[in-house]
Design a protein around this nucleic acid. Structure first.
Lengths: 239, 239
DNA sequence: AACGTCAATATCGTATACAATCCGTGTTCA
DNA sequence: TGAACACGGATTGTATACGATATTGACGTT
């Protein structure tokens, strides 16, 4: 079976030509945690991988950098971003501000078609979760939130939310502590129910608490080093 | 005297090297309405103007495109964006959602230094308004709002607000109908007072109504043509 | 053995060159 | 006269080439 999350379509200002596709592919890979935070994305390597020149690869990387998924350091190159704990808090606070409003608007605009789309997302998410592909499930979850924004029909907020959700994915890759995503699934069902009833206040409230849940599901406490120590990566070695 | 609005510093993902400066200069020019919405920004022209190659000019334009100030059409080039009426509403609704929250946070964090910075902005704005340079005054007003966000110390929201304010400037260039900016000035003073008192709720409320004022100061009704007619530009000629 | 210096290499920043696309003009034909 | 077409100029899309900068490893010194 071939369930792929509706790709989190990149912003309004599309980079020209081939760069768009590369953007989307890199974005998908990052969102699914196939490219982990901190990984180097060398221009030559990206270019070779996708069969384009460095120019195009560069354009794609710069576009991703504007979305916050990639960090470019001068004369050093591009890396998959590693959000700080501070930034993690800010991103989820921003989502907690924006998404309840979006949910309310979506509830107001909801149509049978919209409901069907959301239901489809939930089904896909469920099936992926069964298969245990955590990265894909997360990506799918993001697509669900974004679909709501599209139904709300607010291009500006949708664009903003898109970048926030992308960054959330990185944050979760770094700081998620729970094993299960049942809370996620439960909230999404509850949201769908509110949407079906076109209950604006309920949708807003559920989304608000969903945001709190997500935020509190993170393990955002300062570790010894801000950079992950070698021991974190390889485990401690007794000499 | 040399009062220049603290430049609305571009996002986190700085384009490399010289492109940053070009970005800032173009941004300033657009925000001050020296480059009007719809104007063509040819890569060669930009490059020649700033003494760099097309490559760098291109990078700068793409960066501005990500901020929404510039629109790039494939194979046609870059233009100063012309926000639609729809987008205008969305931008100001988004600001109305975000800025009151930012004002509240700023009030909470306010320090004597912060107050001094804001006071400085207000003074500058006042002086510029006296001189009658509408574009510069507007740019200065944006800088004031952004300064609040920086005091609120929320990088993520500040970044978002930055793009919203930039776009607001374009919107105002297209749709502003009032002659005066006294309401602007009044609101800013009121905000400063709330900040001085560290009155969070007052700051939030004043900002909220300030947003409503700004939004309602726009003339957002459909005109006959979306494109400005020649008559609009040259005046009507009786044959 | 540890540290600092220096060269080699890899990667990025910028400039230039070529290919593809679009737009306006002028011509041709109905 | 008007519409369709073809051509030429201009501008963007992409590739490549060269210069600048940072990192890595070797070497010599303390």
């Amino acid at each position: 079976m071939n369930i792929v999350p509706a790709d989190l379509r990149s912003s309004f200002s599309l980079p020209p030509g081939k760069a768009v596709e590369i953007c989307h592919k890199l974005e998908a890979a990052i969102l699914q945690h196939r490219l982990r935070p901190g990984m180097k994305l060398a221009e030559d390597e990206v270019g070779d991988t996708f069969g384009v020149s460095r120019t195009v690869a560069r354009t794609a990387l710069q576009a991703l950098a504007h979305g916050g998924l990639v960090t470019i350091e001068r004369n050093r190159g591009a890396f998959v971003s590693r959000p700080t704990i501070r930034e993690a808090h800010e991103v989820f606070e921003a989502r907690a501000l924006i998404e309840p409003r979006i949910a309310r608007m979506a509830a107001r605009n909801m149509t049978p078609d919209g409901l069907a789309v959301l239901q489809h997302h939930i089904d896909a998410e469920h099936e992926i979760t069964e298969r245990g592909d955590m990265g894909l499930a997360l990506s799918q979850s993001g697509a669900f939130h974004l679909a709501i924004a599209e139904i709300a029909d607010q291009a500006v907020l949708t664009q903003i939310l898109h970048t926030l959700i992308s960054r959330s994915s990185l944050i979760i890759a770094l700081y998620w502590r729970r094993r299960d995503t049942s809370c996620e699934s439960h909230s999404h069902h509850a949201l769908l129910k509110a949407f079906a009833a076109r209950n604006e206040s309920a949708a807003e409230e559920i989304m608000k608490s969903h945001m709190v849940d997500l935020h509190s599901g993170l393990d955002l406490v300062e570790r010894g080093d801000s950079e992950p120590s070698l021991a974190d990566v390889f485990g401690r070695i007794d000499l």
